[in-house]
Design a protein around this nucleic acid. Sequence first.
DNA 1: CGGAATCCCCCATGATACTG
DNA 2: CAGTATCATGGGGGATTCCG
Lengths: 96, 96
Amino acid sequence: MWKKCLTLSVGNRSFLIVKNLFAGTRRFGELRMSLHGISPKTLTACLRSLESHGILTREVIPTIPPEVRYTLTEKGMDLQNVVNQMKIWGEKWSER
Amino acid sequence: MWKKCLTLSVGNRSFLIVKNLFAGTRRFGELRMSLHGISPKTLTACLRSLESHGILTREVIPTIPPEVRYTLTEKGMDLQNVVNQMKIWGEKWSER
DNA sequence: CGGAATCCCCCATGATACTG
DNA sequence: CAGTATCATGGGGGATTCCG
């Protein structure tokens, strides 16, 4: 059921994370900045949830200091249609 | 900002309510049944929120017993594009 | 019938500090 | 840098009862 696509979110921040990843791979800290002060705990929870749903992949580069890259999967990239429609709707109806 | 379209929700049940209203006007009790046991308090909160965002209208018919009709506005109907994309995405990627 | 009122629980989220 | 650990909290949501 399509309803499942709603349950993927740990809050609706997940959409914001996905939106940020459309532009390409991002690191933990970069995402944290983009979400204006989300706590690391919450960000981790969101990312883990998205990963478990196959929306994105988590790649650990074992360097010092460590580097972790988050990248959308094909399934995640496919969410662009959904997000685009949200964007269109928002632009059309905001400020009316 | 398109981000506003995310804040309209009191939980993501709002999407389910909107989905139900695409088919036409619904009464309070009908919506309550469709959302499989949502508490009246929560349903009311969702509906009030959607109403305040101009997604739907609330029409009270002063009969006994009372009848209240919820109908999508043009703005609300426009959400079909968003929901359709969610549906498409969900059907494409569920069970994979 | 369509809520409003009340009580209560639980979890998502924040803030902060610490670690490999 | 990328988390984990811990503590605290607010409000989303349920269950129930009452009312016009």
